[in-house]
Nucleic acid binder design. Structure first.
Lengths: 262, 262
DNA sequence: ACCTGAACACCGTTCAAGT
DNA sequence: ACCTGAACACCGTTCAAGT
């Protein structure tokens, strides 16, 4: 019965990166009448996602941007999801990660703490620059080349913390799931401000006013007033900065404490 | 120009919880011919989201489930997004959180570490039980009554860590953004297994095989083989459990270290 | 007060046909 | 090899109309 159900649906590859035909290579452009290739399609998709957001992104909208009929894109890409996966990995390529140095497990003399901070900042920045990334990263398998490169860089750094191997995957979660969650919130906040056409600080105070006045919410906001104020920072940007860095230092400190305790 | 652009779009409330008409109260059913009310609509929406997932959820699909025409639902709810926000907060209501004890800031004698663990586990379980929650929680404002109750419980616990107030919001991020990210991954994994109709362990080994054989990926997987094996646990469920608890203990340890350092 | 039907402006994707 | 047009089976939402 299960087999029958699986047979009924289409192949359902779990990711573009698994057994994908990859039609055109991608380097040379202009061979085709329309100058289309995977790289250009992906680049325009990224631009469109940045400009208009994931909910408004459609194959038809993309096609008009490419001066092409909606169905031309399907020559290069099997489904919309495949294309989104390509766009996702493309922006992961923006992250600058330290390359592996073969034979040098110590990876120069850099402190693992500093390297972890740098990787966390790179990841956060991608999530904030491209708010649609968090939704996609949460829904796809994330096995594109650029994300894998990042994730192996993370593994190399964690290896040098001194944590026992059995705890290394947990430590990776503690750092990067936090960054993922934080970047998700921050990215969507920035996106909403841009969509509303107001500054972050304006949007924040308007939102606070709305929440405080809402009948079902106001009575319960009293308790967190003191917390909001103590959070520090004059601007929303400073608030984000402060929260991000204290959280990151808490996690790094937690790893250190665990290492020295052993 | 910005003002004009804002005027052109519809009011665009940022959340159902802000100035929503809330048409029918919700308690008494049967007054209406079809027995419809917000609570029933929300409950059926949750059931449908659980059963078929967010991408397949539509107002028309929901309406047929309610034995009603597609447009009837719009009497009770302004937009699909509003309904999704209601469904989101409804399942946040599944979390059991310690109630505030007025006047008792110490909140009995319970250890803040234990209380933090409990809250983290509750949140994680919601994310895994309802994989659609993470997408929605990432995209909405999360100011429904149930989520607020949870988030105030979190604030009360963090207050008792001994951290300076300026660092408390950061600590909250460290714990719950991690849980959010972790629950997102875990929830989607569980969902994919169910959709494919195989056990978690079967799905995992199939996925590992696929990834290891993929031409563009295999060469780079060598490095993480040792890590995967050292991670421990015979089953996927044990792996998740192990990673979650070591990560959580790292963060809790990080908070402790920061408190005693002050 | 509550519900329906028809309609509008969209979707992703298939398929046969063009060059 | 690459691109198009028409078509299918859907969407969310508006609006005028019913009871």
């Amino acid at each position: 019965m299960v087999a029958a159900e699986r047979a009924r649906r289409r192949p359902a590859r779990a990711s573009v990166w698994l057994e994908d035909k990859a039609r055109r290579g991608g380097a040379a452009r202009g061979g085709q009448p329309s100058g289309l290739d995977r790289d250009r399609i992906t680049a325009v998709a990224v631009a469109l996602l940045d400009a208009e957001g994931l909910p408004k992104f459609s194959m038809r909208r993309l096609a008009t941007e490419l001066n092409v009929t909606a169905m031309s894109v399907y020559w290069y890409v099997d489904t919309k999801d495949d294309l989104l996966e390509l766009a996702l990995d493309a922006v992961f390529g923006e992250m600058r990660v330290p390359a592996a140095i073969p034979g040098d497990e110590e990876e120069s003399t850099a402190d693992w703490r500093d390297q972890l901070r740098e990787l966390a900042v790179e990841y956060r920045e991608v999530l904030v620059r491209h708010p649609w990334v968090s939704t996609l990263a949460g829904n796809f398998l994330n096995i594109g080349p650029n994300y894998l490169e990042f994730s192996f860089a993370v593994q190399r750094v964690i290896r040098r913390t001194g944590l026992p191997m059995s705890e290394q995957t947990g430590a990776i979660s503690a750092v990067f799931q936090f960054v993922y969650g934080f970047g998700t919130i921050e990215g969507h906040f920035v996106e909403r401000c841009a969509a509303a056409g107001v500054s972050e600080d304006e949007y924040f105070s308007e939102a606070m006013a709305a929440v405080t006045q809402a009948p079902r919410i106001s009575h319960v906001m009293e308790g967190s007033k003191a917390l909001m104020e103590a959070r520090g920072g004059d601007t929303v940007a400073e608030m984000f900065e402060r929260d991000f860095s204290t959280a990151l230092e808490i996690v790094i400190g937690g790893i250190e404490a665990r290492v020295t305790a052993v």
